[in-house]
Amino acid sequence: MSPVIEVRNLRKTYGAGDTAVHALRGLDLTVEKGEYIAIMGASGSGKSTLLNILGCLDIPTSGTYLLDGIDTSDFDEEQLSLLRNRKIGFVFQSFNLVPRTTALANVELPLVYAGVRRAQRRERALAALDLVGLKDRTHHRPNELSGGQQQRVAIARALVTSPAIVLADEPTGNLDTDSSREVLAILDRLHASGRTVVLITHEDEVAAHAMRTVRVVDGRVAGVLV
């Protein structure tokens, strides 16, 4: 069976000439289906750039990225938006919920762009909110929710389309200890139910939840700790 993520010789350079910044310098990474991986690294090591490329939010300067067996190298913006919609669930450090919009509508958002019908959309969004324990907060707006609740809405939004991978960029970075524990418990449950999860963190306790930890140093994978 082919891996969910297969990255070969990935490079990303910002700017050009003397002022060029090499964020990724030939990185290789493979993630198998059902794995739970933590990516760690100092700030500026390129781990966020890596996750953005894995999430199809950014495109690499060179190298290949196979997502669920599909080569994304020469995809245009239209095809990438389709991939983001169908294959990827992204959880951000700063939640990134649409303001002035209810939790339910936020979770429904990817399904709208996927063309799912209204009734089914609602059903699936409610199920996802139930999964993160927010069934009683469906009509609250982001500014009426705590940080932990907002992040759980964001996770519900990430998994409502049943994506091939869930990517999380320091999901607990803005949360207190209790909220962090809840969010990590949800990610653990996702993994237990067979989902592939990749998260970035710089806390060892968070990384401890993962099956293995990948260390990124200077734009390359430095070592894999199991």
Binding site: L57, E78, S81, R84, N96
Partner: peptide, 16 residues
């Protein structure tokens, strides 16, 4: 702009 970014991140195509 942020809202547009969020919509794009969850898969909104340019046309929408």
């Amino acid at each position: 702009i942020r809202e547009i970014g969020i919509r794009k991140a969850v898969g909104a195509p340019r046309s929408s």
